[in-house]
Amino acid sequence: MRVFRTCALAAAIGLLGHSASLAQTSSLWNNKQCAVVLTYDDAIDVDLDNAIPALDSLKLRGTFYLIGSSPVVAKRLPEWRRAAQRGHELGNHALMHPCDGSLPGRTFVTPDNDLSKYTVSRAVSEIRANNVLLNAIDGKTARTFAYPCGDLQIGGVKFYDQLQNDFVAARGVMGGLQTAAQVDLTNIDSYMINGQSGDYLIDLVKQAQQSHTLVVFLFHGVGGGHGLNVDLKAHRQLLRYLKAHEKDIWVAPMVEVAEKIKSAQASSAAGKAKG
């Protein structure tokens, strides 16, 4: 009987701990099951023509990672400003979108934009210059960064280490669902979407709901406009699912979700230090 009571007590304590953990996670995700971040890279016409109108029609907000030198930024600047005013984040995707041309499959990289030929100081300076441009568009200082091509290093040096005070967080390109404690704010996981179905996109969200985690989508073309593309129908299916389940799913720009995670991680670290 004593063994039974001991086992029952241990099980009860385990359940209480699990419930407390879930409650803490739900609180972090604005008292919802999970968090979803919709990100769109490269500042292309379809962002303004397809993606933003689709999001606005359902009152959802996303993060648009802008390349400062993109002609679509210069030609359509008032539209980007209006998007920011409606709550979309204008994230930093570098001034020139440099990628490491020394890696396999990088024949598209031009000599002028070859990250492997950059110095760290040049990369940092260009990224900061893009922040100045973005601030001139939206008037905001808090934003996130997305690594062009997912490249983190120059000559073995992580250039973002010098930029951590300039951003709330940085988004990478490796897929994965993560709890707040697992998130690396210097390289947040994301699922790069290229041709997957609406059912696939929705299934990722359902997995996040079940595991109470963060899922980040990385889009380029939406209904065309880029070599990496999601079909308009698939994109619309995802947005409709998110809207239909908004009581259970927190959909927000990366900067807002990252700020929440950053605060939670800082609190956890402070608690452990006191302990």
Rank of each mutant, 00 (worst) to 15 (best):
M1P: 11
M1Y: 05
M1C: 05
R2P: 03
V3P: 00
F4V: 09
F4N: 04
R5P: 01
L9S: 06
A10S: 06
A11L: 14
A12L: 15
G14P: 05
Q24R: 15
W29Q: 04
V36D: 02
Y40M: 06
D47H: 15
L48N: 11
A51T: 12
S57W: 07
K59Q: 13
G62E: 11
G62C: 14
Y65F: 15
S70P: 13
S70N: 13
S70T: 14
P71Y: 14
A83P: 08
G87Y: 09
G87S: 10
H88P: 12
G91T: 11
H93K: 13
A94H: 15
A94W: 10
C99E: 14
S102F: 07
G105S: 07
R106W: 08
T107S: 15
K117W: 05
R122C: 00
S125W: 06
R128C: 08
G139M: 06
G139F: 06
A142W: 03
G150M: 04
D151S: 03
Q153F: 00
Q153G: 00
I154P: 00
I154D: 02
V157I: 09
Q162W: 02
Q162M: 02
Q164F: 01
A169T: 02
V173Q: 02
M174N: 09
T179R: 10
A181W: 04
Q182K: 08
T186S: 12
S190F: 01
S190P: 03
G195I: 06
I202V: 15
D203A: 15
V205K: 03
K206S: 08
Q210G: 07
T213K: 09
G224Y: 03
L228A: 09
L228G: 01
D231C: 03
Q237L: 00
L238Y: 01
L239I: 01
R240E: 12
E246S: 09
K247D: 11
I249F: 08
E256L: 12
E259G: 04
K260H: 05
K260I: 12
I261H: 04
K262N: 07
G275A: 11
